[in-house]
Design a protein around this nucleic acid. Structure first.
Lengths: 380, 380
DNA sequence: CGCAGTCATGACAGCGCAGTCATACAGCTG
DNA sequence: CAGCTGTATGACTGCGCTGTCATGACTGCG
């Protein structure tokens, strides 16, 4: 454990004492400078910074964490998927955390891993994080973690035990409701739902919003098909909807499934939105450019991430302060070309394939698939 | 700094000495047990683990890192985008790192941030990482970092200074070449290219592969349009290609741009693949379900991540060992329905809009847009 | 002018581990 | 059975920083 270059390697990183010596001050003063503490004269501060620059000094965070008991690090538990929602949320969380002066540790929980969240949280605690973000958790039967740091749950109620749990982004239900209402407003008698995997709180919220919208108008609730968020599962569901024969409107729990769904409907000879209207969820970047451009519900991922991190950082730094409530995110329904009023006649030749592609435009509504994609969202 | 519960909080986390006391051994022995060292009797090991369990002991990583000089942490510098490629790569990196016993720290560099990578690397070094992964870097003019830990560069040559730099996943050029050749093999006289932003090495590789394929057959290289990876930019490019009037095949540098491109072509009255064939890149999950299902080049993200981390961990743990070369990733062209032979006649009425949607199927080739999507890749 | 209050700095201890070395004892060997 | 070697354990120390307290120098004010 001697210093100064093991085996001819680099000459050992400089420590704060080295800087102190060069600047002619005490080591503690160097620490003060680097922590931006008060009571350091400008002259000394300048000398210290100069010395540090000259030596290429970099603070050792392990030592800092050990001495102070705080790591200025937030741990994130996220699903190991490239799904647009979780990925976008993670980016927002990283930026918000960095702006607040925190670094990030990330652990993925593979879906289907039993006790995955608990294990991930455990490993983060071992790493000494000051707070934990659980992003879009899967319900594993109310994992009650007794954790001694604040926990932020994104996209789910604060189901994890402990008094120091905050939540953000639990507002998907109103969004789902608005999406469903958009279809009802167009005149559809009822709306089918292509749900996400019900282990996800996000999927349940959307299901709940859909139910709420139908109930509020006294409409029948058709059976739900459950997908797994993938376009592939949307395609499979689309084949079922197509053969059911009485579907005029579907609210899909995310855009990927909506895209698969539309493909299956189209292949079955149904036109979207001529015969069946489809609403997605998320507003993924390609949604405006698929055929037809997808009407979808934009999610305020950045706002959720910012709000959440703000709450979490407050819980870390001022544990006794009033937990300021999260903002209500805006409802942004982006109306494009996949939704239209229902067909006026009892649709003929449904469920059987017709010629590939569309031909005329018998009851083709406004908003066919040849409009340039809308990019401006409609804010309600 | 007294222990045992500040202000009525939780009663201070147990340390290894506490476990040692309870187990009737020395602190050092507890350390041995938790590090899986040799020379601990089974009896003692059992007692220690029992005691640790009883106290809920969790190792303090800051202390471990400080004492040992190693953090068992890898830092990742990644772009702050939800693009499929980077996001998927990050997931692969996380899993590979965890399998190798390393935790992850993640820092995003916002695109356009000058010196972003350098700053991000700096902050990671401050955090005391044992190695650094730079994922899909943007070229900022050969940032030569003098870093004293091994660096893995993913998706780019090992441009970053230092002898301890390894690289993986630099094989996109052959993939791009194969994608272009697929179009030439179909009989297209030449192939246009919708490039990615040329600051990205990944984008340059694809451009290079495209050029190589054309050169090898002595074909003309039409002017390149540069997009920004987004469907929106693909759409804009598509309008240009459509008005150019002589385009029969386009190789897009990623799937999102290909989707936007196809939309613009379709709106201009051109059929895909009847009039214009399009090949994408990445094989994003929705590629099989858009209209028409996209022929695209699958990228071996997982293999790249695994290979890379293996190299990096080796560079960390056995600095003197021979750096085993990365495997050559397989070329997986997934042929779906967006590519076909060129139109047989000098195409009439091109560049002007015809009726929306396609009508007949004059020279509609096999692989029209009504085939069920292929999901099995063709391995070359 | 003397004393409190502020500002600026340093001495010192200790955070919770892992590294080093010393020690103790068991089983062998010749 | 002296002299080994190999196994199992503990005492002690220090990683590089921050927290606490002590100490001066300087201000302002009665």
């Amino acid at each position: 454990m001697t210093r100064v270059g093991g085996r001819g390697g680099s000459p050992a990183a400089p420590r704060s004492v080295d800087v102190a010596r060069l600047a002619g001050v005490s080591q503690k003063t160097v620490s003060r400078v680097f922590n931006g503490e008060r009571y350091v004269s400008d002259e000394v501060r300048r000398r210290v910074l100069e010395a540090a620059e000259e030596l290429g000094y970099r603070m050792n965070n392990a030592a800092r964490a050990l001495a102070s008991g705080r790591s200025r690090t937030i741990g994130v538990v996220t699903l190991g998927t490239a799904l647009y929602g979780p990925a976008t949320l993670l980016i927002g969380v990283e930026r918000a955390a960095r702006d607040a002066g925190y670094a990030l540790r990330v652990v993925n929980t593979l879906e289907g891993d039993p006790g995955g969240v608990a294990g991930a949280v455990e490993s983060l605690l071992e790493q000494g994080v000051d707070g934990i973000v659980v992003s879009e958790p899967i319900d594993e039967g109310s994992v009650s973690l007794s954790v001694d740091v604040p926990v932020l749950v994104l996209g789910a109620p604060a189901v994890f035990g402990g008094s120091r749990t905050v939540a953000a982004g639990v507002g998907a239900e109103p969004l789902a409701r608005a999406a469903t209402e958009h279809l009802l407003d167009l005149g559809h008698v009822t709306v089918h739902h292509l749900a996400g995997p019900q282990g996800w709180f996000a999927a349940r919220d959307r299901l709940g919003g859909w139910r709420a919208a139908l109930s509020a108008r006294g409409r029948e609730q058709p059976p739900v098909i459950e997908g797994d968020w993938s376009a592939e599962s949307g395609y499979a569901a689309g084949r079922e909807f197509a053969s059911a024969g009485d579907v005029t409107a579907v609210f899909a729990a995310n855009d990927d499934m909506a895209i698969g769904l539309i493909r299956a409907l189209t292949e079955a000879g149904l036109r979207v939105p001529g015969d069946v209207s489809v609403v997605g969820f998320d507003d993924v970047p390609v949604a405006a450019y698929v055929t037809p451009p997808l009407t979808t519900m934009r999610q305020p991922f950045d706002a959720v991430a910012n709000d959440g991190i703000r709450l979490l950082v407050q819980a870390i730094e001022k544990p006794d302060a009033e937990p300021a409530p999260a903002h209500d995110p805006p409802v942004e329904l982006v109306v494009r070309a996949s939704t239209a009023p229902p067909p006026t006649r009892k649709t003929p030749a449904r469920g059987r394939r017709t010629a590939s592609g569309s031909s005329g435009s018998a009851h083709s509504p406004p908003g066919g698939d040849s409009r340039p994609p809308l990019t401006e969202p409609t804010v309600n």
